[in-house]
């Protein structure tokens, strides 16, 4: 079964350069039979990145991709707290560069209207929007979106495909929060391989709205793949989750960029 991974980083794997880290990621991905990786964010992260930080992190990803265009895609890391710089990064990395999506992390909750111009521009470019979400009983970071924030964002942009990163972390709540918004898909990556996660997502959202992501290298490709391979769901649903759904979400921008699969 072909596997595309929506959610990878250059962190969590050893290596002094983006190239070294990317090679290690690919090495592990190969062992697990993962054909394609989406990579976002650079060698060093910050919760509230400056414009220079955003650019540097996107440069890391562009460098990492440079030898692996046949295996990996990049998402541009942006922040609504630096709107002009973020729109510039979309222009540089997506419109004029090889990237195919947008990554929003924890600088600003996505219920805030300041995110809107980024999502609107991403939609114009057909770039897939990936928004980190987590609902932590231990307390969220000040700018960290919950899945309910993401539902609010989706309601404001019903035509823009949006991925709910980590399915909200607390996935039993995250699945419910995004359920009514047909443009929302959920990313399985980044939490423990807790049994029942994928079954509930498929039951409540349909297999077409569930996408495999690992959150490697911080997470193990293995533990995250287990969420799909170990789930009591039909084989056809596994095939969709492991690759077909992501191909569909990226299809418009890949087609626009002339990328053949």
């Amino acid at each position: 079964m072909e596997v595309w991974d929506l959610h990878c980083h250059l962190s969590g794997v050893p290596g002094r350069t983006p190239d070294e880290r990317m090679a290690r990621l690919i090495e592990h991905a190969d062992r697990m039979g993962i054909a394609r990786l989406c990579v976002f964010m650079g060698m060093e992260w910050s919760y509230d990145p400056s414009p220079e930080d955003l650019r540097r992190q996107n440069d890391d990803v562009l460098q990492a991709l440079s030898h692996w265009h046949h295996r990996a895609f990049g998402f541009a890391y942006v922040s609504p707290r630096h709107l002009e710089a973020s729109l510039d990064e979309l222009k540089r990395c997506v419109r004029d560069g090889p990237m195919v999506g947008v990554k929003l992390w924890v600088a600003q909750r996505c219920s805030d209207r300041s995110v809107d111009p980024i999502v609107e521009r991403a939609a114009e470019l057909k770039a897939l929007v990936f928004q980190h979400t987590w609902l932590k009983v231990t307390g969220n970071l000040p700018g960290e979106s919950t899945p309910m924030d993401l539902a609010d964002l989706a309601a404001r942009h019903p035509g823009a495909p949006i991925v709910c990163g980590h399915t909200g972390g607390d996935w039993e709540v995250g699945v419910r929060a995004g359920r009514a918004h047909r443009s929302v898909s959920v990313d399985l990556g980044g939490g423990d391989p807790t049994a029942g996660f994928t079954e509930m997502a498929v039951r409540e959202l349909g297999a077409d709205r569930v996408v495999f992501g690992s959150d490697a290298g911080g997470r193990s490709f293995a533990s995250q793949l287990a969420k799909v391979l170990g789930a009591a769901i039909p084989e056809d649903a596994k095939r969709r989750i492991l690759s077909e759904n992501l191909k569909g979400l990226l299809g418009p921008i890949l087609s626009a960029k002339g990328v053949r699969l």
């Binding site: 592990h28 807790t194 049994a195 193990s220 293995a222 793949l225 287990a226 391979l229 789930a231």
Partner: peptide, 15 residues
Amino acid sequence: PLFYIESALLKLKES
């Protein structure tokens, strides 16, 4: 059964 057993199985393949 709290975790999918495939997680531990696949970890042995990943390294």
